[in-house]
């Protein structure tokens, strides 16, 4: 039987590198098969050509869920959302959710940004949850 090689299939076959190389694309859209030494030497590659895409992370999340690694699957789904966030901003977001860094309102704003700017509802949910717990457990930024 002909195997469906696209990632959007209901059943991505693990490992993706071995089973879906033809359709596997980097965050830039470049095919994984076009990432080679010749392309590197010709300066055709950019850092985004070596970044994982949201689509691939969702496929990995699906694989993890199917293998009963539920929470890992949730993590990979959150990761898929975070591919949209630029490096510097991602570092800032992480800092903001560390203890004592943000007020309740700042965390709500962060959740809003995640949801609207980056279409990251799962991460927004995580940050809102954090805000509620931080408030309850005195882990918000203290006003000096």
């Amino acid at each position: 039987m002909e195997q469906d090689k696209t990632l959007k299939t209901a059943q991505p076959q693990y490992p993706l590198m071995e089973n879906h190389a033809e359709t596997l694309r980097a965050a830039s859209g470049r095919s994984v098969n076009e990432i080679d030494l010749a392309a590197a030497l010709a300066d055709e590659l950019s850092p985004d050509d070596l970044q994982i895409s949201a689509e691939t992370l969702r496929a990995q999340a699906q694989i993890a869920a199917q293998a009963s690694f539920t929470q890992l699957a949730e993590n990979l789904s959150r990761a898929a959302e975070l591919t949209a966030v630029p490096n510097e901003e991602l570092l800032n977001m992480y800092t903001a959710v560390r203890p004592g860094r943000s007020t309740y309102a700042e965390l709500q704003t962060l959740a809003e940004t995640l949801e609207t700017t980056y279409h990251a509802p799962l991460n927004a949910q995580l940050v809102r949850e954090a805000a509620a717990v931080y408030q309850q457990r005195n882990m918000l930024k203290r006003n000096l």
Binding site: R78, A79, L82, N123, A130
Partner: peptide
């Protein structure tokens, strides 16, 4: 324990976010 966790400058939520941040970069 909660106190030790916070002394380590994180919470389960920030650690979970960090884990996703790493995964988002493969």
């Amino acid at each position: 324990t909660e106190r030790t966790f916070v002394d380590g400058d994180d919470t389960p939520w920030s650690k979970a976010f960090l884990a996703s941040a790493y995964a988002s970069r493969g």
